[in-house]
Design a binder for these strands. Structure first.
Length: 560
DNA sequence: CAGCTGACTTAGTACTATATCT
DNA sequence: AGATATAGTACTAAGTCAGCTG
């Protein structure tokens, strides 16, 4: 790994991201191999030997058959439509009904392969691992300016069936195989230009040093660009990350003024201004995302702040003894449900009532506002300020405050309070996860262990009592041993109880997203220094690499 | 000047490796 | 030593936001 101090290096002029960039190009997935003769696809009960392209797509479906979504109407229709496009004319004339398709043998073969891979011997697994490492060494690195850097995603995404999140209208569509002819390479003129795979050529080789990507292609399902980019531990990404937190810290210095301003704007004569003020209030108070408009029918129906519709909120003059309560219920990014009942200030409440007047389901709550207008306003208040900066700012400041409030002495308890602070942020940002499949079981296991340890502790205590009675002096060997046993039991019990609390509180909350994207790492590094906690207790290797810049520059007295 | 596109960050989940337990 | 639980990684979808374009 290169040793460098990025804040001491020269800065390029505006927009220039590098002077030299060399890499090997992306790594392509292996070509499709036809099925063995004894694995057959059946249509209407009769075996049919499919053409190679049709067979490949059939296998994509067969591989997913354990998933519930292959039973969904939308998924099946999209799949069947796209599959038929890959068929020969003859196949297309024969295969007219997905329900008459029998992928059973293909499915069984796939499961067998998965099983076989799992059962490989240690040696075979090692061979695979080494082969993988070789690919990483060859394709996973590049040279950017003076540094050898890891690439984040150097592998071309393999073909398969698209599965969006939630109720996605395009689920089941064929995500096509990417050829070198689809790929644009970006590198510097004076570097060794990557070789396309034999018999192929690149779509284009360009030398654009105002962008950070090494290769790109257009994905066929949504028509969007995909990029090969650097790993998070790279200098380029680190610098950007640092900048992000510096902008958020700058917001700290003017957030009071901005809050005063939008409180004032709540009274504006301009409807647009008032809507902007309410939206900003939500973004600031609830850490909502900006909420860009989305093309209807192209993606799942999700919203953010500016794209909220009237059916996403319910107004309660009083609720559970609180006044002016707004009940939010909508699907946000990744179709994660946002549900929250929040008391708001009167002026916001009155404005919301006004915005909802004469509107019906499906109408925008903020019909005079969009994210461009909002961000334009924000950038006039502070350079670099956009809606998402509030999320970063509020997340980081919350962590700092919580850590202050939850100070504790025991190391284990220290970590628990760190996690609690982290959790407060995750809740603010609505970072959820599916409860782990094994959650109930593993919780029960842990409880059983706690119970048995408690019994052990009781026993150990009794033995200690006995030993005290029998002891001839305080240095009696048996007495000392008994004391130690009790102590050990107590420590282990505490450890397990802390673990149980932590795990229970974490059941449906994902801590990693905020740790990775929202919490200024310098807060955590400083906390570790002050609390004398090893950094690796809260940051794994990947995180320590990503936040190398913060680890290097942060003193114990850092304040966000 | 709205709509589109490109570039980049943020996100949850499935898979894999490692640690811990029996 | 093998089984199981947990942590970490890979993957790629889904956002944000600015600048371009017709």
């Amino acid at each position: 790994l290169d040793i460098y101090t990025l804040w001491e290096e020269e800065k390029y002029e505006d927009g220039i991201k590098w002077k030299f960039l060399e890499h090997k190009g992306p790594y392509f997935p292996p070509e499709y191999q036809t099925l063995p003769d004894d694995v057959k696809f059946y249509y209407n009960g009769k075996p049919v030997k499919l053409s190679l392209p049709a067979e490949e797509v059939a296998l994509f479906f067969a591989q997913m058959m354990d998933h519930e979504y292959t039973t969904k109407e939308v998924f099946r229709n999209n799949f069947f439509r796209d599959w038929r496009k890959e068929m020969t004319l003859e196949e297309r004339q024969l295969i007219m009904d997905l329900n008459k398709c029998d992928f059973g043998e293909l499915h069984a073969m796939h499961k067998q392969k998965v099983e076989a891979r799992k059962n490989l011997s240690k040696e075979e697994k090692l061979v695979n691992k080494e082969a993988n490492q070789k690919i990483v060494d060859e394709y996973g690195c590049c040279v950017l300016d003076h540094h050898r850097e890891r690439i984040g995603n150097f592998k071309i995404e393999p073909p398969g069936l698209f599965r969006g999140r939630g109720d996605h209208p395009k689920q089941g569509m064929l995500k096509k195989r990417i050829q070198p002819e689809d790929v644009i390479i970006n590198c510097s003129k004076d570097s060794r230009i990557p070789e396309p795979p034999a018999g192929h050529r690149w779509k284009e080789v360009r030398h654009d040093n105002t962008v950070t990507w090494l290769a790109s292609w257009t994905e066929n399902v949504q028509g969007s660009c995909k990029y090969v980019m650097l790993n998070a531990n790279s200098k380029l990404k680190g610098e950007k990350d640092w900048e992000k937190y510096e902008v958020a810290r700058k917001l700290k210095t003017c957030v009071d003024a901005i809050r005063a301003q939008y409180q004032e704007d709540l009274k504006s004569k301009q409807m647009g201004t008032r809507q902007r003020a309410v939206a900003l209030y939500f973004i600031d108070k609830l850490a909502l995302r900006a909420g860009n408009e989305k093309e209807e029918g192209e993606t799942a129906d999700t919203v953010g702040c500016c794209s909220l519709r009237v059916e996403h909120i319910t107004l309660h003059d009083t609720l559970d003894g609180q006044k002016c309560v707004v009940e939010f219920d909508f699907l946000g990014k990744d179709c994660i449900r946002y549900y929250n009942k929040v008391p708001v200030i009167k002026r916001v409440f009155k404005n919301l009532k006004l915005f909802m007047e004469n509107k019906q389901e499906g109408d925008d709550l903020f019909d005079r506002l969009n994210t461009q207008m909002l961000n334009k306003h924000l950038s006039s208040l502070m350079p670099g300020l956009t809606a998402k900066v509030f999320r970063t700012y509020n997340a980081s400041i919350t962590l700092q405050q919580q850590l202050k409030e939850l100070r504790n002495s025991e190391c284990l308890v220290k970590l628990l309070s760190y996690n609690r602070a982290n959790r407060a942020v995750a809740i603010l940002c609505n970072h959820q996860r599916a409860p782990p499949k094994t959650f109930e079981q593993s919780m029960a296991n842990l409880q059983a262990k706690i119970d048995s340890r408690k019994e052990q502790l009781d026993l150990a205590k009794k033995e200690l009592k006995q030993a005290k009675k029998e002891a001839k002096g305080s240095s009696d060997n048996k007495l000392l041993m008994s004391k130690k046993a009790v102590q050990r039991c107590e420590e282990q019990l505490l450890k397990m109880e802390v673990q149980a609390t932590d795990r229970e509180e974490n059941k449906q909350i994902a801590l990693s997203t905020s740790k990775l994207n929202y919490l200024d790492p310098r807060i955590s590094v400083a906390w570790c220094k002050n609390m004398e906690v090893q950094l690796d207790k809260i940051y794994n290797k990947t995180l320590r690499d990503k936040f190398a810049w913060a680890i290097d520059m942060t003193e114990h007295d850092f304040v966000f």
